[in-house]
Amino acid sequence: MERPRKAVVVTGFGPFGEHTVNASWIAVQELQKLGLGDGVELHVYEIPVEYETVRTLVPALWERHSPQLVVHVGVSGMATTVTLEKCGHNKGYQGLDNCRFCPGSQCCVEDGPESLDSVIDMDAVCQRVAALGLDVSVSISQDAGRYLCDFAYYTSLYRSRGRSAFVHVPPLGKPYSAEQLGRALRVIIELMLEFLEPSEEATANGRHGR
């Protein structure tokens, strides 16, 4: 009997500020062309840079697809590497979005934890990517920026109990092309799925053992 295909959702952001072309969405579209192999059903979405849309859309994607993993991709004007974010933060959102809005509470989830970590070991993923010798450098971060990227990540981590990831990419051409970013995303997400599988098997065994 064939194993069911895993659903994976990958999002990029739309234009904002100086990023009239958002490298994150371009990179996600390149990933879509490549796919994640026959065993994965890939769903991609462009998310507008709006707090209220993120607040409703991210949980809706979890409901719609019941994915094994959701990976959010965003652009950082300061990044020169592809950056794996370890955690999302609940408070400190003061930057105005494309609608000139920011949450009155300046937080994602009222009474939520200060920060939430991904269940994926980003250090291990980073080491594996480095060992493959890609033409893209990958690094680790614990601060996704307290703007829509961080807001989306925390919202997703909260909804998924940590089964989310966030990847920051540099602007296009600084230094990587869209094709390089798409290939890097494919490798990174395939490794993340590998890291998720052992923990799922352990959970299943634990359930059967009781």
Rank of each mutant, 00 (worst) to 15 (best):
Ser160Val: 08
Ser164Glu: 12
Leu132Cys: 03
Tyr154Ser: 01
Tyr158Met: 11
Asp150Ile: 02
Gly162Ser: 07
Thr155Phe: 03
Gly133Ser: 13
Thr155Met: 13
Gly145Gln: 12
Cys149Ala: 10
Ile140Cys: 08
Ser139Asn: 04
Gly162Thr: 05
Ile140Glu: 13
Asp135Ser: 05
Gly145Thr: 09
Leu134Cys: 09
Leu132Trp: 05
Ile140Ala: 08
Arg161Phe: 13
Tyr153Met: 08
Arg128Lys: 08
Cys149Arg: 07
Arg163Glu: 10
Ala124His: 13
Thr155Gln: 15
Tyr153Phe: 15
Ser137Pro: 00
Arg159His: 14
Leu157Tyr: 10
Ser160Leu: 07
Ser141Asn: 05
Gly162Tyr: 01
Asp135Gly: 08
Arg161Val: 12
Phe151Pro: 03
Met122Asn: 06
Ser139Met: 03
Val129Ser: 05
Ser156Cys: 11
Gln142Leu: 04
Ala144His: 05
Phe151Thr: 02
Thr155Glu: 12
Leu157Ala: 11
Gly145His: 07
Ala165Ser: 12
Leu148Gly: 03
Arg159Ser: 10
Arg163Lys: 08
Val129Gly: 01
Gly162Arg: 02
Ser137Gln: 09
Tyr158Thr: 06
Asp121Phe: 08
Leu157Asn: 14
Gly145Ile: 09
Gly145Glu: 12
Ala152Pro: 02
Tyr153Val: 00
Ala131Pro: 02
Val136Gly: 04
Phe151Met: 09
